[in-house]
């Protein structure tokens, strides 16, 4: 089967003011099948987030191009939506208005976008909080809004940039389980960037381990664990073997000075 998302070798160099250029990505290449859950792990600064921004259409690579469903990516598009690490909620908008942002920008009327936004708010468990402002919510609730907002445009691909990194450990466990349920129900293609080996192993069909900067693929690890995956699975020997495998692949790339 043709992969749903694919890229040629992507190279991207930043030139910060008064500093040496930094090559964030060098010959990075990726292929994703439709409906697949893929995680990217790699050392800090290896270009994982940069890659997501290229895929999102906010950054243009110096070399290489990306294709989604056979079409070249030239900018943001409705078939892709991002969940950001720092949530990125508009503080002057209520939960409802934040979730409705995407459809609103597409010019959808209130009548058509409201019921869908309500459905998504219910889906992420925020029923009753529609009129709340972000500063009145906990971190976990904020990211639920972030997730609902990303789903509101009904994208094919969900890009997630360390979405649970700012949450406490228990909230993170909870959100991971809920994300899997939502993914199972909605059949989105998910590209998930994380620092957590456990998170990557628990959620993904495949884990891409990246090298240190300039980032490229070091190894792709298939996670052959049955779904649906419960919390118990995280305590199984098979799961621990996978975590160890990822760790062993990753550890040479980690810079003790970072």
């Amino acid at each position: 089967m043709e992969p749903y998302i694919r890229s040629t070798d992507i190279t991207l160099t930043f030139t910060p003011k008064n500093r040496d250029p930094v090559t964030a990505l060098k010959d990075f290449r990726i292929e994703l099948n439709s409906g697949e859950f893929v995680s990217i792990v790699g050392p800090s600064g290896c270009g994982k987030s940069t890659f997501l921004n290229v895929l999102l259409g906010l950054l243009k690579p110096d070399m290489g191009e990306m294709e989604i469903g056979g079409k070249k990516i030239t900018g943001p598009g409705v078939e892709r939506a991002m969940v950001f690490q720092e949530f990125g909620l508009l503080p002057w908008r209520t939960v409802m208005a934040n979730v409705e942002l995407g459809p609103e920008l597409k010019g959808e009327s209130v009548a058509s976008r409201r019921p869908r936004a309500q459905e998504l708010i219910n889906l992420v468990g925020l029923t009753g909080f529609e009129g709340h402002f972000p500063h009145e919510l906990s971190g976990g609730m904020k990211q639920r809004v972030g997730l609902a907002r990303a789903l509101a445009t009904d994208p094919e691909v969900l890009l997630m940039d360390e979405p649970f990194a700012a949450l406490d450990a228990q909230t993170r466990d909870l959100m991971q389980a809920e994300l899997l349920q939502i993914w199972d129900k909605h059949k989105k293609t998910v590209l998930f960037v994380t620092h957590s080996i456990e998170e990557a192993a628990y959620l993904s069909d495949r884990v891409i381990v990246m090298t240190a900067r300039p980032g490229k693929t070091k190894r792709i690890i298939k996670i052959n664990l049955p779904r649906p995956r419960g919390y118990e699975m995280r305590l199984s020997p098979e799961f621990n073997d996978i975590k160890l495998d990822i760790w062993n692949t990753l550890k040479d790339e980690l810079n003790p000075r970072e």
Binding site: N53, L56, G57, L58, P76, G77, V78, R80, A81, M82, F84, E86, G88, L90, L101, G102, L105, K106, R149, T153
Partner: peptide
């Protein structure tokens, strides 16, 4: 916040 700019841009 450039993040908010990116959010709105990414949603079209």
């Amino acid at each position: 916040d450039t993040l908010l700019i990116n959010v709105v841009r990414s949603l079209g």
